[in-house]
Design a protein around this nucleic acid. Structure first.
Lengths: 228, 228
DNA sequence: AGGGGGAATTGACGCAGGTCAAATCGGGGG
DNA sequence: CCCCCGATTTGACCTGCGTCAATTCCCCCT
């Protein structure tokens, strides 16, 4: 593993406070792996054997059922994933695939569990990370149950804008069909919803989005700090 | 607080392994409170000041937005709730109200945080509890995104039956409008969906449900251990 | 520059589930 | 035992979103 990777991982909130001895022990059998785009690296239903840390690239968490599938989250570096399954030593509830070519560090889940049993500071950080994941899933669920597709889309566009320093114009960071799945709609519906938002000052050309009336869009989205 | 309450709380997975000294310290300022039915005890957006433990009665977790609201979870004794907000010392993402008259033990969240920083065994159990909550929310979200209303209802009925020792007949444990909201549909749709399930061997009279063909219903629900 | 192929868009149409309003049911209080 | 009121059901209708099937677009490859 590159020592860069190691340093980046060490600097994550999740690993920042653990003792060096403990970090070293946990990372002893860890290794980095490069994956091409569109490769499935976790299959739901299988047992969690590694905590994954995305160091470079991007990853989609999705779930499958009866031939349908749905995007549950989209991850960017540097972040860990499938922590909960590792902790509980339980089957994955979601699958994961790369979107772009990605580098992922794999930490054996047994070593992870050993580390947080041994190191109270680390356990605290694991708790915080899990609480963050939980709350993020609650927000996603709230959005699905309380908002219409158009409202979800409006809120999503505003989030993207915020991520780009509140720029009026920005590029959609993923394929539209992926965004659609994340928002819980079909690509066709996303396409039509984007068109419908022209009335609220949303202009789209390909992946390029321009928001000409943020306030109007925010009013439609019903932005809410407890959901977005 | 009744010593019964204290013993029940102590026996929860979440508190079972912590040291007695630590448990006593954490519970020092805790107190039990009785609430009548239909009383809101947590308002989303307010800051978490207490970990709640439901000892008797039942509680609904719900979220509100723009005058709409939706049931996120229904709790039965004995279980803790709003752990994540306490841990993160963050605003509640969900509100809580009693369904029936309930007894709830309130543990100051500062004492909780102090306890798990001091006691590694407790931290481990907090992690496990949070991981459980997270996974439960993932399942709920999967069901919303992947299944139709009818499929969700079928799965829910089978879960209720399982909870009653796989009895063919059982009573719905909550008002139908509550169940509808939990399933993410309107009461009218629930009523019609129940009627439609007669074709799959579901008979309903008031709150009384009888399943005459479990296999048929399970096939429709597409029961999945990664979702139900 | 041309061509191939997946992504996105568009159109036509259907349907699941929402909405609104009007019965009807059912359980608790007097 | 009757009444009352909220819960539930039913009906009529609507609409948001899905489905299916063409195009069209865009990008990459040669």
């Amino acid at each position: 593993m590159h020592s860069d990777d190691r340093a980046e991982i060490r600097s994550l909130r999740l690993f920042r406070n653990m003792s060096t001895a403990n970090f070293d022990a946990m990372m002893h059998a860890a290794y980095a792996q490069e994956f091409p785009a569109q490769l499935q690296l976790v299959r739901q239903g299988t047992r969690a054997t590694f905590l994954h840390v995305l160091v470079e690239g991007s990853i989609e968490l999705f779930s499958e059922w009866q031939g349908r599938d749905s995007t549950m989250a989209i991850l960017r570096p540097v972040s860990s994933f499938i922590l909960a399954a590792c902790i509980r030593d339980a089957p994955h509830l979601m699958s994961a695939r790369t979107l772009d070519a990605s580098r992922v560090v794999l930490i054996p889940s047994a070593d992870l569990r050993a580390a947080f049993r041994r190191d109270a500071d680390f356990a605290v950080d694991v708790v915080e990370e899990l609480a963050r994941c939980y709350r993020s899933m609650v927000r996603h669920t709230k959005s699905l149950k309380l908002r219409s597709a158009r409202e979800r889309l409006a809120a999503y566009l505003l989030k993207l804008s915020a991520r780009n320093g509140n720029a009026a114009g920005f590029a959609l960071p993923y394929e539209k069909r992926l965004i659609a799945s994340y928002l819980g709609i079909t690509p066709e519906s996303l396409s039509r919803a984007l068109k419908a938002l022209a009335a609220e000052g949303v202009y789209v050309q390909g992946a390029r989005v321009t928001l000409t009336d943020r306030d109007r869009l925010a009013a439609l989205a019903g932005l809410d700090e407890l959901m977005d």
